[in-house]
Design a protein around this nucleic acid. Structure first.
Lengths: 322, 322
DNA sequence: TGCTTTACATGAATCAAACTGATAATTTTC
DNA sequence: GAAAATTATCAGTTTGATTCATGTAAAGCA
């Protein structure tokens, strides 16, 4: 660039591409997780890699993008500006990629869904709404209900996708992990057990447990917590509605075991208290079950990607599965 | 992904980033040049590299982006869709990068320009208009005129940037090549010399040459064409206005030597004919001269990048300098 | 039609940059 | 203040983008 002498010709004036899509994704992950470690995890990279990447980017731009020494990390004004860009650009790139897929295999198809995990209603509906905009030509349907057996229906071809936390081996059915979450126990604020930091199986021996009206063999509290310890609750009472379960718990009629992301919002409002089941807690994994063939269709792949991303982003305390 | 057996768990569902900024730039270069070879040149890559890149991208997207066997190449519908994305995204990325620069060094400054190449008015004005939007806080000014000596004024600090095709060594002045272009000779359609495919110096010995009113030592026709052959035209007549020069040429009053990009538009309208000077033609290089210190300022760098890009894109028949 | 020119494709080798793993330095939390 | 967690850094490895050399196909021209 300079030999500090008379009239030299400066040649390398190519436009240095500083920003890459990769960087924008990193920034978004950073914002959504609040730490480099977690952002790295979400991007399937090591913390080291991301640290290098950020250092390199900051060097290229010659500016600091965020303040590390604060939890959660805070973005500088430059960082905020780039996040604005990221939100815009990443959405558009995604859309373009989808459009290309559609142009190629002019895809239209069917995506009938069912849930085995009844709380999943909470996130599934908003996800479907987003999805409908992305793939307007796909025929969508949803089967709920407690009597309905989704997995056999999936194998038979009656439905195309089932949300379940119980991946039982079935010919031609594959399970795509979405995320893992903690199964929390909801308890009245003034309940004596609320004094404990976490609950043991025995604690439930003289309590009423409130569940969805399904067999015990399909409930994680039994499978992973009570049964192994040989404990049965004093009574089991059922409810089809989550909100009603919470009301019952709040008024001291019993305890309930539900995903953290369901209980969190009620706990935040101080309606009830939540405790872990055991010291480490119970961490089921939620899967999307689809038939083998479906996995090749981009409109199915896209739904899976969307669901996973949507949950990781919006559901409190859910973790990516390794 | 598949072991074609019972109920396997499919794990790798990370969103494969297919598109990168790099790819978008390639597509745009492809559109603007109309061939892989030239696009590669413009991106400072080999033809091979670009060929690989495109193959890889098409594989990732699983679709053809453009039809190679046609000149200029034609884009497929998928290609067109991605070009749409590219235009949107690249502009926004540029803007964001500029904003970051401004946030950092809150840059405001001065950019007084002058031209030694008088035809440059044509592209300089539109370029300045674009630039003004990008850097509204920069004070812009422009000195024209045939009596004014820009290069000394640059060294003295009266102006900050000079467009010239004659990079004479001056302390503290650096020359940034913008592009190279062919110096064409304009000639009346019915002129006897119009029969030749290109002109020799001797052809001008009995002709009138119409030039801008500057010394012959600053005119490329003399420096690079007539003087080396020891030829002088029958007469030299001057005009300050390009359009008037062309009118004179069209009516058979003489010949003129002007950059291809100036004459091309008149030739396209069949107003005049153009011929090369010599078999290979004369190919001057146009430079932007700036003072050494200016090169570190991003608002100057940005002007240079913009000018170069704008000319390569919009001026007919200009070439990037190696 | 055959010959030359030009543009693009391909394979192997190279090289740079991104990533990892281990560890050190730092900060936060209790 | 100690322990835990987060981030930075170093050196080694891997990946994948780029080049070089060459092959193939199309376009232009006699």
């Amino acid at each position: 660039m300079n030999k500090t002498n008379v009239g030299c010709v400066v040649n390398e004036l190519r436009y240095l591409v500083m920003l890459e899509i990769r960087h924008l994704k990193t920034l978004v992950a950073l914002r959504e997780t609040g730490s480099v470690v977690e952002a790295a995890e979400r991007m399937f990279l090591t913390q080291s890699a991301l640290s290098h990447q950020l250092k390199e980017l900051e060097a290229r731009l010659d500016c600091e993008l965020f303040i590390r020494k604060s939890r959660p990390l805070r973005f500088s004004s430059a960082g905020k500006r780039l996040l604005l860009l990221a939100d815009d650009v990443l959405a558009k790139v995604d859309e373009a990629e989808r459009d290309v897929k559609k142009l190629m295999h002019g895809e239209t198809g069917r995506l009938f869904m069912a849930i085995e995990c009844h709380s999943c209603f909470n996130w599934l509906m908003p996800t479907i709404d987003i999805y409908r905009n992305q793939w307007p030509a796909i025929e969508l349907d949803f089967s709920g209900g407690f009597t309905f057996e989704p997995l056999p229906a999936l194998a038979q071809g009656e439905v195309d996708l089932v949300i379940t936390s119980d991946p039982l081996p079935l010919k031609g059915v594959e399970y795509v992990p979405l995320f893992s979450y903690e199964m929390h126990i909801g308890i009245a604020n003034n309940h004596p057990l609320a004094a404990k930091t976490f609950l043991q199986p025995q604690d439930l021996a003289d309590q009423t447990l409130i569940t969805y009206p399904v067999e015990r063999s399909r409930l994680d509290v039994f499978k992973q917590f009570l049964n192994p310890a040989g404990v049965t609750p004093l009574a089991v009472r059922t409810s089809e509605l989550t909100l009603m379960m919470v009301q019952l718990v709040a008024s001291g009629r019993g305890l309930c075991a539900l995903p953290n992301w369901v209980l969190a919002e009620y706990a935040d409002q101080q309606l009830i208290s939540v405790r872990s089941a055991g010291e480490k807690g119970i961490w089921p994994v939620l899967y999307a079950a689809v038939r083998e063939e479906s996995l090749t269709a981009s409109y199915v792949q896209d739904f899976l990607i969307l669901a996973k991303a949507h949950c990781l982003k919006n559901l409190q305390g859910v973790k990516q599965v390794a």
